[in-house]
Amino acid sequence: MKAWQLDRLGGELRFNDVRTPEPRPGSVLVRIEASALMSYLKAYVEGKLPVYNPPPGPFTIGTNGVGVIAAVGRDVWHLKPGQRVVLSSHFVAPENVEDPAQILIGLTSSPDAAAVLADWPDGTLAEYALMPVAAVTPADGLEKFDATELVTIGRCIIPFGGLLRGRLAAGETLVVNGATGAYGTAAVLLGVAMGATSVIAAGRNRSALEAVADAGGPRVVPVTLAGEVQKDARALRDASGGGAHMAFDMVGQARDPNSTLSALHSLRRGGRLVLMGSMTTELPLPYTAVMLNSWEILGQFMYPVSAYRRLLDLLRSGLLDISAIRPRVFPLADLRQAMEAAATAGNLECIVIQP
C-alpha cells in the first residue's frame, strides 16, 4: 500500500510503498476513505513543534479518519468486515490501572507513554490503517454523509470532550472563548446541538464572529472582546442574561490571559470554566472571587472513549449540523500541497485527504 512516512521530526517525509499491515489481536484493519488534516501538520513535520514526542523510527503520520473495516484480528467480537467506522487518534491503554497511558496515534505521547506509541505508531495518511479497537467507532446510520463530509466530525470531538467534562446541560447558557478558531467554532455548533439556551461566541474578530453566529443559528450571540477583563466580562454577562452557567476556553497560544479571565468572570455563582486551549503565559486566578462565587475550574485533555459514540448520536439524530464546515479535498499523493492549505484554512474549512 501507499503511505506517507516520516523518519523523524524535521526529517524526510516520503510517499512510500509499504507492506499492508496484518490484523493482530484487539485490532482492525481499515481501508481509509478520508482523513482530515490538523492545521499544524506542516509545522509538526518540519520539526517546529519540539514539545511533541513522535514514535521511534519511520512512521505513518495522520491522526483521524473515516473508512471501512477490511479485516479484524483475534479478540474482536463486535466490529465486522465491511462496517463503516470513524477512527480516533486518542488511545488509552486498556489496562485496569490507576493511570493508564494515553497517546495520539501517528503523532505523539508523553514520555512515560512512549512504549504504547511504539506499539501503535502508524496513523491514517495511507491507504490502510491498523487500529486498536478502542480507537474505532461504528458509523452505522450515517450513510447520507459521504466520507469527506463525515470526516469533518473530527473537528468536533475534542471540544465535545470539554463540554462533557463541564457537564453542559440543556437549558444552560454557554460562553465559548476563542470561538473563531477551528475548535472554538465547533464548540459553538456543539453547544447548540446539546441544547444550550444561548451560546455566547466570544473573540476579537467581529466579522469572523458573525460568520460563526450565522453558522450556529439564532441561539448564538457574538460578543467582540476588547482585551479589558472587566469590560469584556460585563459584555459577556449581559449577553448571557446576567451570567453564564459554563464557559469553555479554547484560545490558541494566547499571549495574555485577559480573554480567559473575562470568561471566568462572566460566570454566575456556581458556574464552571473548562480549559482546553493553550497559553504562553501563566493564568493568574482571583482566589477570593473563585471562592466566593463557588466557581469550578476544570482542565481537560482530549475526550473519554465513549465520546465518539455520543457525538455520532448527535449527528445521527440531526441535532448536530456540521454542514457549515466545508471539506476541501486533496488526493493522497498531494499531501504537501494539502498541508500548506491546512496551515491557512479558515475555521469553517476542513482540509481532507482522500486515497
Rank of each mutant, 00 (worst) to 15 (best):
F145I: 00
D214N: 11
A134G: 14
V136I: 03
A193V: 06
V176F: 08
G203R: 11
L125Q: 12
L209M: 10
L163Y: 08
E98K: 14
A202W: 08
L117Q: 11
V133H: 10
V92R: 12
L190D: 02
A186F: 13
S198E: 15
D112M: 05
A93L: 10
A226V: 06
R167G: 10
D122Y: 01
D122W: 00
Y183M: 10
A213G: 13
S88V: 00
V92T: 15
A202T: 07
S109G: 09
F145Q: 05
V188Y: 11
L107V: 06
A118C: 05
S88C: 06
L107A: 15
L104D: 09
L125V: 15
G216S: 07
L87S: 04
S109T: 06
G123D: 00
V188S: 11
V151E: 04
A147R: 03
A147V: 01
T148C: 12
T185H: 15
P111H: 09
L104F: 14
M131A: 08
A215L: 09
T197W: 03
A213W: 04
L189P: 10
D214K: 13
P100Q: 05
T180G: 07
V229L: 09
A193D: 01
V92C: 07
A126P: 13
G227W: 02
D122M: 02
F145Y: 15
H90F: 15
D146G: 08
G154Q: 02
I105M: 08
D119F: 11
I105R: 09
G191Q: 04
P132V: 01
G178P: 15
V175I: 13
P159S: 03
P111V: 07
S109V: 04
D140G: 12
R155H: 08
A170C: 06
L225D: 01
A215E: 04
A186H: 12
V223C: 07
S207W: 08
A114W: 13
G123V: 06
G216P: 14
P100L: 02
T173Y: 03
E228C: 04
S88T: 09
V116I: 13
V85T: 06
G154V: 00
T173A: 14
Q102A: 14
V223R: 09
T137Y: 06
P159V: 00
V229M: 08
L225I: 03
A139V: 03
E149T: 12
G123F: 09
E210W: 08
Q102T: 10
G161T: 03
E98A: 14
T108Y: 13
E95P: 00
F160V: 01
L104H: 13
M131D: 04
G217N: 04
G154K: 01
N177K: 02
A93M: 04
D112Q: 13
R167L: 09
S207M: 11
V192Q: 11
G216W: 02
V175T: 10
P94G: 04
T137F: 03
G217Y: 05
T180C: 06
V192W: 09
G195I: 00
L209I: 10
